[in-house]
Design a binder for these strands. Structure first.
Lengths: 187, 187
DNA sequence: GGAAGAATTTTACAAATGTTAAATAATACA
DNA sequence: TGTATTATTTAACATTTGTAAAATTCTTCC
């Protein structure tokens, strides 16, 4: 996905502001399996994902809980670091070889302070993440595991093809055995 | 809670920007039980809550699911309307007589476009809601109902005093019977 | 093609949570 | 104060989901 499209999908920037932002980006490539951001660290970078797929997960006791999948055009960043400047509680793993645009969070925040268009871009960025997250929360609270699975199947069918089911199960908040049961349609 | 504090708690504004924002606010009072915002409507207003407590809930099938409590200093707004300009899927009910500052969302967004400080205020506002929502989502996905209840007891003890348990149970994503069991510490 | 390893499904049983209805406690107010 | 109403807890049972381990299927790679 073209970087201009990734940026302008959030909020269309005037050319000058777009160039200010793009001047801070560095194109990078990493292989499948890379741990791009690690939990319990204050990371300095965030990433715009232009090719590939990644997941965010937290380690809870013995096992990992996946709570986000990023695909082309999505963003890879620790919410707690980006917003509160504190240690992240999630790690990001690349599930395919990925192409990303890296940006230093501190530099990005400086841009927000000096350019009203970039400040509004940053506002829209947070707002879209908020909308997505709230929808997930409501689904989690209001719907059964079975409904959540069928929603995912309907809205993100390609995800089921690209990601192994253990990750999907923990994303849905259930065990892999439960997911198998749902898929087999036995209840 | 003083309105200047509610505003500046998000992001400290220069005096001129603060006045721009405050000029759009109207102080209002409503009794307990008021449905301030209604689901399936595009509401034009949002509110800064200076006194009292409110809940957001969605109607799912026969019953209501509460997924937000707003207290002094919090905000009352439909995320889907505020962000996407679309029908809200939640309603807001006042659980006590409340004092609020009402603002027209369209006017607020105009301010975002013309003043970099207000744009950054709007950014920070969305970011803080995002952080809060993501933490709730992670708790929902990673923790047992029992842990979520004890977290609430520890972090928001006054909420348990002010809100009836049926609402707390649905906020925690469990039935009221389950909540009673957890409170009785029988398992 | 075939063996080794990884992913997924299945089985059997345990634990958690839900549902309905009844019992008890708390609150409102005539 | 006493009664009606509402909120909360308890009981009994059904359903969902989890856990551990085995069986099966799919991938990888020599």
């Amino acid at each position: 996905m073209i970087i201009d499209n990734i940026i302008n999908k959030i909020y269309t920037l005037p050319a000058a502001s777009l160039e200010l932002l793009k001047a801070q980006l560095h194109l990078v490539h990493y292989p499948k399996g890379t741990l791009l951001l690690k939990a319990n660290i204050i990371e300095e970078s965030m990433y715009f994902l232009s090719k590939g797929i990644a997941r965010a997960f937290a380690t809870v006791g013995d096992d990992e809980v996946t709570f986000y999948f990023g695909q082309e055009g999505d963003f890879i960043f620790s919410i707690n670091t980006y917003i509160a400047g504190q240690k992240s509680y999630e790690s990001f793993e690349l599930l395919e070889p990925c192409e990303l645009y890296e940006i230093n969070v501190a530099h990005l925040k400086e841009l927000y302070e000096i350019d009203v268009h970039l400040a509004n871009w940053g506002r829209k960025f947070a707002e879209q993440e908020l909308l997505r997250t709230e929808q997930r929360l409501i689904a989690m609270q209001c719907k059964t595991a079975q409904e959540r699975y069928h929603d995912l199947l309907e809205n993100e069918p390609e995800l089921l093809q690209r990601v192994q089911l253990g990750h999907i199960a923990s994303y849905l908040g259930i065990s892999q055995v439960s997911l198998s049961r749902i898929r087999a349609d036995r209840r």
